[in-house]
Design a protein around this nucleic acid. Sequence first.
DNA 1: TATATTTGCTTAAACGTTTAAGCAAATATA
DNA 2: TATATTTGCTTAAACGTTTAAGCAAATATA
Lengths: 343, 343
Amino acid sequence: MSNNKKTTIKDIASVLNISPAAVSKALHNDSRISLKTKEAVKKVAKDLNYQPNHLASALRKGKSNLVGVIVPRTNSNFFSSVIENMEEALNKEGYNIIITQSNESYKKECRNIDTLLFTQVDGIIASMANETTNLEYYEKIKSKGIPLILFDRGENDLNVDYIGINDYDSSHLIVDHLVQQGCKRIAHIGGYKHTRIFNNRIRGYIEALKKHNLPLEDELLIESSLTTKDGREKMIQLLSLKDKPDAVYVAGDYAALGALQVLNEQGIRIPEDIALVGFGNEPFTAMVTPAISSINQHSTEIGKLAAKTFLEHAKKTIIEQSLNKIILDAELVVRDSSNIKNS
Amino acid sequence: MSNNKKTTIKDIASVLNISPAAVSKALHNDSRISLKTKEAVKKVAKDLNYQPNHLASALRKGKSNLVGVIVPRTNSNFFSSVIENMEEALNKEGYNIIITQSNESYKKECRNIDTLLFTQVDGIIASMANETTNLEYYEKIKSKGIPLILFDRGENDLNVDYIGINDYDSSHLIVDHLVQQGCKRIAHIGGYKHTRIFNNRIRGYIEALKKHNLPLEDELLIESSLTTKDGREKMIQLLSLKDKPDAVYVAGDYAALGALQVLNEQGIRIPEDIALVGFGNEPFTAMVTPAISSINQHSTEIGKLAAKTFLEHAKKTIIEQSLNKIILDAELVVRDSSNIKNS
DNA sequence: TATATTTGCTTAAACGTTTAAGCAAATATA
DNA sequence: TATATTTGCTTAAACGTTTAAGCAAATATA
């Protein structure tokens, strides 16, 4: 049944008594091959169930038509949506993608980079793991002359193309909204300060508080790994304060969920006693009770733009040094968890 | 900066004045190469920042050391956990994986299969899209002699290795549990009948009802696409019945969530008025109010076993026809949505 | 009709590895 | 000391493509 020997261009050539080179050209619609030969070749190719050997053509052309993708995890609506849209745009141009996940681990991320380089990808589109501070492996990609595009979790120091949302402004949006709802003591459970996006959210939070002449207190600004579990712990920490906050802005939806669980368990009313806002607009924010207000990160747009940026690199032969930093405006989706006036 | 010409085995050879073949053997620790030469080669390789060209070696060896993975979507805890564990096991043996998602679309799935075959993967591990009924593309994989392993969503007709849970028994677990809670009119929002796993769940449901001498009524058994949206609609349909059910068993967690939303919106008490059970044990089942009872599908185990099964194929040179059908026992995680006696 | 151009192919080499076969020198065995 | 074996390499070919260069026949142009 399974005809183990795969059909090659040579098999087609020998059937038609022409050279393998002619077959290759016929399959690629070379203008110097007659229509008659092209049709014959394509017919035989189909009959013999010919499948081009990608490895051979990639080796010969020095181009694999594969793009490597690194994300902290695929099990998040944001990342899977980015990937979906990126893939669609790249497929259209004949590229396929290889998805790898770092699980937020620096070591795993390094291994992923090695894997992708080893697979001879034509470019890498990545969002960095939380743990990553050492950029050596990313420098390695750059030094090989392989296009590198970062999205969401990026680093300024790397000096590569980047697509993300305006984290600083997002914090302003959130604080403005909470102030408008009447909140006066707004806490922030933020991500790791060393990660640029989280640092920007923290900066935005601080500046927005100043703007509204609200107290900026150390005990209200907490650094977190932003997992659901850590969200719980940091919320408990906030509730142990003598002077509790009346609003909590959490820099990630999963951690916001943990905070919500704690508030619900302790019978604290949301948003009347404490208003809650998350970040990322994961689908579950709309599913839980009360639904969590959150920032929409425009995953569709980010995916498309990342693909587009890569394609621009791939098309140009001259290596230009113009950087593409695309910062999208974020959008606050207000739900029950911070909608005091209507509740 | 970016030394564009990549280092090859020939570069190393010319530095040391030995043949490229000797370099290749030295790098692979061939016993016929002296320790001195090996060390010299490895040192030069490191100095020149040598990275083996995977395409060339794959072409020469006729083996890419890549395994293709097809899942309906990565944005589900079940699938991403399966992938994570599969990847870990395969990485250990020197294989890397390429993840693709079908988004439950038959057309996309076919394109994914073509992509993976084109990339010359050594094997494919897949879970089929909901839409898929035509098995032609999967037959194509088989006819090429490439190991194919299905998990969760598989088809008996394909006659390939399969890893999944016991769907039939799972339905029994659920119905037994609901009967024990005192439910007498148990509805089932099931998946597409043409998909084996959903068909097995339906069969299990029917048999379990018979076992308990409960009425089996057409209006209580509904076919669904199992999206959250469709779960809502089918729940509304059930609520419009003259004789409403006192329990609903939904064959997927996302649809169960839709059902839960409708019940909550209409002020129907869960589980007192209607008990609810889902399937898949997605993390959000524990997050919503009330938390949804669900079936744990052993994603960790499935991922590991799928990898193991592939590796067995890869190791044997003789093509054996012994099939591996691994059916794991499922486990019901009881939560508030069906816990009548304690509520 | 003579020359130039175009068409439709072939030939040969290359991409970077791996590996079978072979060979000289070193070492072991009789 | 003569032969056999082992060691440590080299040579050459191959994996399946693509592509530059070239050539004869067909066609176009002067």
